[in-house]
Nucleic acid binder design. Structure first.
Lengths: 233, 233
DNA sequence: GCTCTAATTATACTTATGGTTAATAAAATC
DNA sequence: GATTTTATTAACCATAAGTATAATTAGAGC
C-alpha cells in the first residue's frame, strides 16, 4: 500500500554470530514410558490430517505438532512424508476394502454385499475421505494402487455374483449386471461419502441404529422399487 | 549429501551488480487482438487445474503457464490466487446446481428430478470434482457457500416433491421421504462423482448414449426393484 | 507529437516446506 | 562403569510458492 522504495534491506536481522558456541541440540532418548509410542502417534495424527485436508495440504511440521513430537521423527521412522503416507495407505486400506465383499456364501449374495459395503464404509468414515481425495487426483500416490486393487480384483467378483443371481432367477434378467453393481455401490457408498453434507441434510450417521434403518430402506428399495404394492417376489 | 558447514552463505548467488544497467522488464501493452482475453484464459486454465488437482496443489506459476500468460496477471486481475479461486466458485457453480431441480411440473416429479440431476452432472463433470474437493474440506472456501445453498434451499424442495407423490399414491407409503431422496441423489450423482474410477470399472461415460441407457436402467431399478416379474404398478 | 493510462513482463522479496544433520542423552549391552 | 545403540531435538539448507513492484510499451486523448 504505502510506498516502499528502500533499495534492498536484506539484512538477516537475527543472523547467529558465526563464532558463537554451538547451542545444545537434542534432548536425548526419552524416559521409557513414551518410547515406541511416537510412531503410532504420528500414524494416527497423520491419518486424521491427511483424511481431512489431503496429502498436499498437510505439512510435516503440522503432523509433528498434532502428534506432539518433533517433525524430524517422520524422517526417522518413515523416511519422509511420502513414506508415512504410503504406510498409512498400504497398512490400513487394503485390509478393509476386500472385507466388504467377502461373505459366507459363494458366490456372495447381492444383499449381503450391499450390507457389508455399507457397514464397512459406515464404520470407517475416513476410508471415504481417502478414496475420494486420492483416487480422483490423476497421478496421486494412491490412485494407481487403488485402481489396481479395486477394479481388477473386487469388481469382477461382485459382477460375477450378480450374474449368478440373475441366472438362478433371483434377479430380473433385463438388468445390466455392470450397471446394477454400480447402482448398489452408489447406494451403499455415496451417503457416507458426502458425510458432512449428508449428515446435515439427510440425517446420515454412523451409529448402529441409523445404519440398520438405512440398510433396511435401501434393501427394500432395491427389492421392489418405489411402486406401491411392494415386496413383490 | 556432502558436508556443508559454511557459516551462513546466504548470498543471493546471482545478486545483480547494484551499479549495472537495469535489464529490460515488461514487454508492454499487447497488440489489440489479445487484449482483454487474458482474464478469460486465466479463468479457464485455473478452473481446469483446480478441478483436476485441487486448490493447494496448483501454483500460480502453473496457472499462468497453462494460460500462456505471465502469472503476475493473476494478481493484476484477481488480486491473487484466492481471488481467482473465489471468482471461479462464485461465478460458475451456483448457476448450475439449482438447474437440476427445476422442472416444468410443480411439484416436480421424482423421475424428472433424477433425470435432471443425472444430466447436469454428466454434462458438467467438473462440478463433481469441485464439490467433492471443496465440500469435504472443513473450512474450505466453498463449503459454507455450498452448505448454505444446497441443504437449506434445494433439498427441502425435493423432499416436498416426494411427500406429494406419496400422498397421491404414486409412491409406496412405507418409504422414508428423506432416505428416498438420498437414494435418488446417490444413484444420480455417485457414478459421475467417481468418474475416473467408474469409467474404468463400469464403463460410465458422458456421452448421450450412455446417459440415456444409464437413466433408463436407474429408473427401472427405482420403479420396480430387482425382483423378477418387474414393472409392477 | 506529447502525455497519460492500461496491460504486461521480469524480477525481487518473504515465508513456508521438505529434507538433512550434528548434538544430545537415556537405555541397553558388555 | 564404559561403550554402543537408539531416540530425540534444534538448527540448517535448498527450493518453491505467493506476493509485490519497477520497467516497459501499446494505445487513447488532447
Amino acid at each position: 500500500m504505502v510506498n516502499k522504495i528502500e533499495p534492498a534491506a536484506q539484512a538477516p536481522a537475527d543472523a547467529p554470530p558465526p563464532g558463537a558456541a554451538r547451542k545444545r541440540r537434542g534432548r536425548g532418548r526419552p524416559k521409557g514410558a513414551s518410547a515406541g509410542q511416537v510412531r503410532e502417534r504420528l500414524l494416527a495424527a497423520a491419518r486424521e490430517l491427511f483424511l481431512r485436508y489431503g496429502y498436499r495440504a498437510v505439512s510435516s511440521r503440522q503432523i509433528g505438532a498434532a502428534a506432539g513430537v518433533n517433525f524430524a521423527m517422520i524422517r526417522y521412522y518413515f523416511g519422509g512424508k511420502p513414506g508415512l503416507y504410503r504406510e498409512i495407505l498400504q497398512g490400513v486400506l487394503p485390509a478393509q476394502i476386500p472385507q466388504a465383499i467377502q461373505t459366507g456364501a459363494s458366490p456372495p449374495k447381492l444383499a449381503d454385499i450391499l450390507g457389508n459395503i455399507t457397514r464397512v464404509w459406515a464404520a470407517n468414515p475416513w476410508i471415504a475421505g481417502f478414496v475420494l481425495r486420492e483416487v480422483l487426483v490423476p497421478g496421486g500416490p494412491m490412485r494407481s494402487m487403488f485402481l489396481r486393487e479395486f477394479p481388477e480384483r473386487l469388481a469382477p467378483l461382485v459382477e460375477r455374483a450378480v450374474r449368478a443371481e440373475i441366472e438362478r432367477g433371483a434377479l430380473r434378467s433385463d438388468l445390466d449386471p455392470k450397471l446394477l453393481v454400480l447402482s448398489v455401490v452408489s447406494l451403499a457408498v455415496f451417503p457416507f461419502l458426502g458425510f458432512p453434507l449428508t449428515s446435515r441434510v439427510f440425517g446420515v450417521s454412523n451409529d448402529e441404529e441409523f445404519v440398520t434403518r438405512f440398510l433396511r430402506h435401501t434393501q427394500a428399495l432395491l427389492a421392489c422399487g418405489v411402486a406401491p404394492g411392494g415386496w413383490a417376489g
